[in-house]
Design a protein around this nucleic acid. Structure first.
Lengths: 331, 331
DNA sequence: GAATATTACGTAAGCGCTTACACAATTGTT
DNA sequence: AACAATTGTGTAAGCGCTTACGTAATATTC
C-alpha cells in the first residue's frame, strides 16, 4: 500500500489523477495496436462532431470542458490527419467551423466497436469496485458546483482562525495598544485629528466610564486588534475605533471583535448599534453589511455624508443573529 | 449535463482527470492564499520526508508512484525554497539523500492544520457522494492490478474478432486460395519443395479423399486463412498447411482455424492430433502450445529435429477443452 | 579480475494541457 | 455613426509530468 493510498482523503485528487492516467495510458496502447492514426485525446472531439453538425472552436471547448487553445491544437492535429475540415462561418467571420470529413466519419465508425469494448470493460471495472462510482462522481461534481473545495476549506480555515482569536476586555495595561492599533489605520487612511487624540489618550475616561466597552483581539499572545462600544443612550451604542493590525488582517479578528461588540450591546439592553465609517474602508464596510448593518444616512444627510466622507450605519438588535457563512464570488 | 458526463464509462478517465484537476486547482489557490511559498505538488514529498529519515530520489519516486525525474525536479524546487537539504550517501556515491531542513519541518507543521482542513472537507465531499468512493478506488486499483484495462479490452477485441471470422469447408472454387495462402508463408520462411507443390496442386485428392478436411477462414467476404487436417489413421489426424494472409494476422483467424480443426478431429473419432512446424514460426508454435500441443520429439529424435529444423507436436484429445484466455506479459 | 549488467541520477525534449496576450469581427451604447 | 465592450480565434509561453538517453557508481558473472 503506497503512501498516496495511505493518505486517504488528503491525496484524493492525486489518486484520481493516477487512476485516470493509468487508464488513459492503456487506452493509448489499445489505439496504437489497432494501428489507427488516432490519439485518445481526439476522442471527445471526434465523438462530439460525429453527433452534430460542424461547431465552432469555442463551442466545442465549452462542451468538452477544455479551453479553446486546447481545441485549437487538437483541431490542428486532426486537420493534419484529415479527420476534420474547417471553414469560415458565413454569418460570423471570426468563427471557424470544424466538421468531420468522410475519413473522420469512417474512423469514427471503425472505432465504434473498440469504444464499445472500452465502455463495457470500464463498466465491468466499475462494477468490480462494488459501487456505482459514476453516480458518486455525478453527486460529487454536483456538490462541488454548489460549493467548491476552495470555499469549503476557506470557510474551515476561517472558523479555525476565528476560534484562535481570543477577545479580552479592557485593562489599563492595554491603553497603549488601543492607541497604536487605532493610529495604524487612522494614519494610513486619514490623518489623526485632535478629536481622535483625545480619545486615544484617555479611552477609559471617554468610553468606559461613560458605560461603554473596549475589546482587544489576542492571537498567540499578541494584541492584534481592538474595538470600542460607546454608550449613546440606554437603547443604543456606537461601534467605533475598530482596528486590526496589518499583519493579522484576514484572520477573523475584526469579525470576532464585531460579534463580541454586538453581543455585548445586546446584553447591555441596547436595541440598536450605530457606527460611522468611511467609503474608503471597503473591507470594513463589507464586514458591517455582512453582520446586518444598513445605511443610516437620512435623506438630507446625503450631502453631509459626502462632505464629511462618512457613512453612517445602523443595526437593529431585535432578532439579530450571527449571519450564515457565505463566500460571495471574489472579483 | 456535459458530454463527458453523458459518455459515462467511455469517458470515465476524463472525468477522473477533470475532477482531480478541479480539486488540485482549488488547493493551489488555498496554499497561495495562506501566503506560504509552497506548491501542492510538493506536498507528497514534504509529507513523506516529514515521516521518515532522508531518502534517495528513486526511493521517493517509487513510494509516490512518480518517475525519478519528477522527484528530481520537485526536489530542485524545494531545495531552492530551502525546504530540503541534500547530501551524498556515504555508502553509495550515486545516491543523493533528501531530507527536510528545519524550515521544511516548520512549514510542514504550519501546513498541518490546513491539510487537516483539506482532509476533512474532502471526506465531507466523499460523504456527500453517498458512497465510500475511497474504498471503491481501492478495489478498482486492485482489480486493475490483477488485469489492466489494456488486457481487458484486448481480450474483448480478440473475442470480437474471433466471432467475426467465419470458418467454411472446402469447396473446389477455393483450391486457388488454398495454394495462395500456403505459398505466402512457405515462400517467406522456406522454399516451396516438390512435395509441397503436389499438395497444393491437388488438395482434394491428397487430403479430402483420404478422409481429411480443409477449412478456410473468411473475414468480410475475403478468404484470409486456411488449414488442413490429414487423416493418419483411425485415431489420429495431422494438422498441416495452416496459413493466414499477412494483412489479417492478429485477427484470430489462426486461432479459430485451429479450434475448428481440433474439434473436427474429435468429432471424427480421433484421439490425437499431431503436427509438424518449424522453430522459425514462433507465433504458430505459441498458438499450438496455447491449445495444449506438447513436444512430440522422441529422445533420439532431437538430433533429427535440429537437422530437419522441424518441431513435432502432439495433442491428446481426451478431455481437451478450449483453453482459458490468457495474456502472458509481453516482452 | 575483467567484462557485463544493473542501478542511481541528471538532463533534454516532448506532451497535453493551461494562462496570458493580441487582434479582428461583432454587438451594445449613446 | 462613433465609440466601447464583448466575443472568437490564434499564438506564445509555462507547468508538471513523461520518455529517452547519457554517465557514473555498484553488483554480478564468468
Amino acid at each position: 500500500m503506497d503512501i498516496i493510498t495511505q493518505l486517504g482523503p488528503l491525496a484524493f485528487a492525486s489518486r484520481l489523477r493516477r487512476l485516470s492516467e493509468h487508464l488513459m495510458k492503456d487506452v493509448t496502447q489499445i489505439y496504437r495496436e489497432q494501428a489507427v492514426d488516432f490519439k485518445p485525446r481526439w476522442f471527445p472531439v471526434l465523438y462530439l462532431l460525429n453527433q452534430t453538425s460542424p461547431m465552432s472552436i469555442t463551442d466545442i471547448a465549452k462542451d468538452l470542458g477544455l479551453t479553446h487553445p486546447a481545441i485549437n491544437q487538437i483541431g490542428g492535429a486532426m486537420l493534419k490527419a484529415g479527420l476534420i475540415s474547417s471553414h469560415k462561418d458565413d454569418k460570423d467571420e471570426r468563427r471557424r467551423l470544424l466538421g468531420l470529413t468522410a475519413k473522420g466519419r469512417r474512423i469514427a465508425s471503425e472505432l465504434q466497436p473498440v469504444w464499445d469494448d472500452i465502455s463495457s470493460e470500464t463498466m465491468n471495472l466499475i462494477r468490480e469496485s462494488g459501487m456505482d462510482i459514476l453516480a458518486g462522481l455525478d453527486q460529487m461534481e454536483l456538490s462541488l458546483a454548489q460549493c467548491g473545495m476552495y470555499d469549503r476549506v476557506r470557510n474551515r480555515i476561517k472558523h479555525r482562525q476565528y476560534a484562535e482569536i481570543e477577545i479580552i476586555a479592557y485593562q489599563p495595561k492595554y491603553k497603549k495598544h488601543f492607541a497604536l492599533l487605532n493610529r495604524e489605520w487612522l494614519e494610513s487612511y486619514f490623518k489623526v485629528e485632535p478629536h481622535d487624540e483625545e480619545m486615544l489618550a484617555d479611552p477609559e475616561g471617554r468610553i468606559i466610564q461613560n458605560g461603554g466597552f473596549i475589546f482587544f483581539a489576542k492571537l498567540d499572545d499578541d494584541i492584534v486588534g481592538t474595538a470600542a462600544l460607546m454608550k449613546i443612550d440606554d437603547t443604543s451604542f456606537e461601534l467605533m475605533k475598530m482596528g486590526v493590525t496589518a499583519k493579522a488582517r484576514g484572520k477573523q479578528a475584526g469579525k470576532k471583535l464585531t460579534v463580541t461588540a454586538i453581543e455585548k450591546a445586546r446584553e447591555s439592553g441596547a436595541r440598536t448599534v450605530i457606527l460611522h465609517t468611511s467609503p474608503k474602508l471597503k473591507i470594513a464596510e463589507r464586514l458591517y453589511r455582512q453582520f446586518g448593518f444598513v445605511d443610516n444616512n437620512g435623506p438630507d444627510d446625503r450631502s453631509a455624508r459626502y462632505r464629511r466622507n462618512t457613512i453612517s450605519m445602523k443595526l437593529e438588535l431585535t432578532n439579530w443573529k450571527y449571519p450564515r457563512e457565505e463566500n460571495p464570488p471574489e472579483p
